[in-house]
Write a protein that binds this DNA or RNA. Structure first.
Lengths: 233, 233
DNA sequence: TCCCCTGTTTGCGCTGGCGCAAAGAAGGAA
DNA sequence: TTCCTTCTTTGCGCCAGCGCAAACAGGGGA
């Protein structure tokens, strides 16, 4: 699959870019290929590059000193990640980026984006939009984690991930396929794989989902929405 | 206390502003006074204004449908808040801002900031710095909430708040005074006032803190750091 | 000074969800 | 096909922390 500068326009931040800018950024980009489970960067590394995921899927995670992990977000094709370093030169990545499948990404030096920001208002706006949306998502998730019970949290997480990285199941309008392990869901909803497993098993008994190894198929999105929102489910 | 445009320079975003810009923003500002417990804005209101706290103290909080609250951040003098609306015109406040003490703030129309951003790179940079720092804090807090036990979370919260809004106790270098109720601490650390009360009582027994009505005095910051970081306290 | 309001403490019981261990599937490699 | 690895399930026990209720205390107003 040969990439060309115009592909960059699929990245939200570059939607308004001129063709010249696209060429310029493209010429500065290095293509990096990463195996499933390997890392684009580690929490604490100097944030020299930012990335644009071209193919595959990745996750941003943070670990505490004991090694326990939480998933901060899941990255889809044509999304930017690791861009915080462009704002604060000399910063380190506050999280780790790990490939969920074999993936490729364009790597561009943060310093280059940093310079570009000075003269291109559309970039500033685009980045701020991204950051704003992300802040809002994190605030919501924080509230959910603090106030909601596990089952609801898992439902909210599954629905959120479905809208972000889910794909419609073949031959069906409403069914959504999620290629995530119990571990991934546990880390994304702030619980353990045991609890996720039990909750999904219960949902399967009720016909809401169908589960498999590293896979969740949502059969009745509406049922999950009810659990996620219901007053006393 | 008469305010003048130069005071705006105490706001991080305006540090690099020209004197003319300060005058301009100042001329657009309305001074709002708010009683303790009252609101600058409510979650869901159209984000027409952003604010700069001039005196007092406030908190940003979010509630879920059942009315349970979480504190997102505590706002000190000369900090901006409610500025997300400037990025997305037509947005609503994603959180509620409530005064912790009698407070005053300058209110400026978001649309004005939005326009100003188009021609003033320093504003873009300043705002992004703020947003970046806030994203990192939220990510950390999210991880803490997901992976740490209550006592450690409370210690982390108290230390964080101490650095953000604490004041040195009179006549002592290391002791820090925090004017927060158990309720505030519970909402900021994602637990209940009962648990906060019990934990603080235990710390007081150990001589780490001194507590009072809506007040915590940190006697041994180092002791709290140990709890916050200790492998197996 | 007393009263009232609001915040805090504490005892008690309970349970949601964690954590381990061990067994059970599902793929992949050879 | 068989073996091995990795992921998932399930039973079981347990306890951290929640939630209620009721008593307690501090501070401000009259």
């Amino acid at each position: 699959m040969p990439l060309n500068p115009a592909d960059l326009r699929r990245v939200s931040v570059f939607r308004e870019a001129t063709d010249e800018d696209l060429k310029l950024f493209f010429s500065k980009a290095i293509l990096r290929t990463v195996e499933e489970g390997d890392f684009f960067f580690l929490q604490g590394d100097p944030a020299v590059y930012f990335y644009i995921l071209v193919s595959g899927r990745a996750k941003l995670l943070q670990s505490n000193t004991a090694g326990q992990q939480v998933n901060l977000r899941t990255i889809n094709e044509w999304q930017m990640f690791g861009a915080l370093g462009a704002v604060k030169p000399g910063a380190v990545y506050p999280a780790t980026a790990q490939a969920l499948e074999p993936s490729t990404a364009l790597a561009i030096e943060s310093a280059f984006l940093h310079e570009a920001l000075k003269t291109r208002p559309y970039l500033n706006f685009g980045l701020m939009q991204l950051m704003t949306a992300y802040i809002q998502e994190m605030q919501e998730r924080y509230r959910e984690l603090a106030t909601e019970r596990v089952e609801r949290r898992i439902a909210l997480t599954v629905l959120r991930l479905a809208s972000q990285i889910g794909v419609r199941a073949a031959g069906n309008e409403t069914m959504i396929e999620l290629p995530l392990s119990r571990q991934d869901l546990a880390e994304a909803s702030g619980t353990t794989i045991f609890t996720v497993s039990r909750v999904l098993a219960e949902w399967e008994r009720r016909g809401l989902v169908e589960t498999g190894r590293e896979r969740v198929l949502i059969r009745q999105p509406h049922g999950l929405v009810q659990i996620a929102e219901g007053e006393n489910p």
